[in-house]
Write a protein that binds this DNA or RNA. Structure first.
Lengths: 216, 216
DNA sequence: TAGATTGTTAATCGATTAACAATC
DNA sequence: TAGATTGTTAATCGATTAACAATC
């Protein structure tokens, strides 16, 4: 349990691991498991058991020594903690391939985000639909943000217009931007920006491959 | 410069930041800059100047006090260091929206990877082409890996077949897998797996948004 | 009861940040 | 020369891992 005042900041690595646990827990639940222990999760996901215990404790779940956690309860706590069971309304801008991928993604499994609409300026895309998400003209963005009270923007435009579109998002009232372009965004301090750079991931992959080849 | 024997391992955060620098440097070069200093990069990308100096030093670049780094040389060193100027041959499996997004991605800007072909089992996708990448039947995967000497596999299938496809990749001779599915892959120790979880990014975004709302 | 696991506190490890000398 | 910046070494900070007590 955490202190009431000055709630200790949860480590970002923990927040990134929780969805990984969640995916595994849902799979384990489907296979009929009733209880699950931290060491069991750790072994499955190749992590340190103590780390799993600590991570799960952040969600507020209470386990029982020797038995572990009730899997239904644990899934509920993790989803609650991450906010994945809430409706997190989002608008997507840039209905290209990556944008369409995210629209389709949420059709099946919930991504934690509810993409209410997508926006673009290309006439060929406007009026189309991917995974139940309609593509609208960008000129309607600002009005729609206010009307539907949307706080999250997903940025999947080409990199060279990313800053311009991000500025538009903010002036329309968006509070958090998930930036999937390679561009670095300069935005006011109070805006939350989450960068997901494909390049960074490729870079890590290549370095690790290089390293593993050196060993052999 | 680094020691010859027992080369110090480069921190992963550094490897992730280098492509961000690179993107900015290329933009700055287009705008006609000849030299650039670490504090200038740091200011632009909202980072610590010392950290930028250290990160760049890993690439082997030599700067000049007061002047900074020659931008052409610096770009060359970063690309060389990351392996982005090499041809890193990759096969993609799962030609859905996300897969198509990656195929299209590299058409314009180079992703550091050269996707030679995509594979799927859906008849409707086989024979199609996205961003100059042809979609072939998965039954040809193994043979093609050997023929073209491909070492990198990009996994963009649905999560429930990810493990099975990953196993196929490895037995065909793939050495590194970029896993863009939410599944955790159980693979031999010597295989490099780079996980890029959309869920983890959403989780961080939501937590940070929640946190920023609490402050106001 | 014995032993595995939770939950917490302490030690370690690694990355970031600060300090400072070298240099152009 | 003076001062900004590189490059390196030291201090700090935060996350991981280890140790251990509590407990079912």
């Amino acid at each position: 349990m955490q202190k009431e005042k000055e709630m200790k900041q949860v480590p970002e690595p923990t927040i990134k691991r929780l969805p990984v646990y969640l995916h595994y827990l849902i799979k384990a639940r489907e296979e009929g498991a009733m209880n699950i222990s931290a060491p069991a999760i750790a072994k499955e996901l190749n992590l340190d058991p103590t780390q799993v215990v600590k991570d799960l404790a952040y969600t507020g779940i209470k386990g029982r020594p020797k038995i572990g956690y009730n899997i239904y309860e644990l899934i509920h706590f993790v989803e609650e903690y991450l906010g994945f069971n809430k409706v997190n309304k989002a608008f997507l801008v840039g209905a290209g391939n990556l944008g369409s991928a995210l629209m389709a993604y949420q059709a099946g499994q919930t991504l934690g985000l509810k993409i209410l609409a997508a926006f673009d300026i290309s006439e060929s895309k406007i009026g189309t639909k991917t995974g139940q998400v309609n593509v609208l003209h960008m000129k309607n963005f600002s009005e729609m943000v206010k009307r539907l009270d949307v706080t999250i923007g997903i940025l999947t435009t080409p990199g060279d217009v990313a800053q311009k579109v991000a500025d538009e998002m903010i002036s329309a009232g968006i509070k958090a931007i998930w930036n999937l372009t390679p561009a670095y965004l300069k935005l006011p301090e109070n805006v939350v920006v989450q960068n997901t750079s494909m390049y960074s991931n490729v870079a890590v992959l290549l370095k690790r491959l290089e390293h593993s080849e050196k060993i052999i």
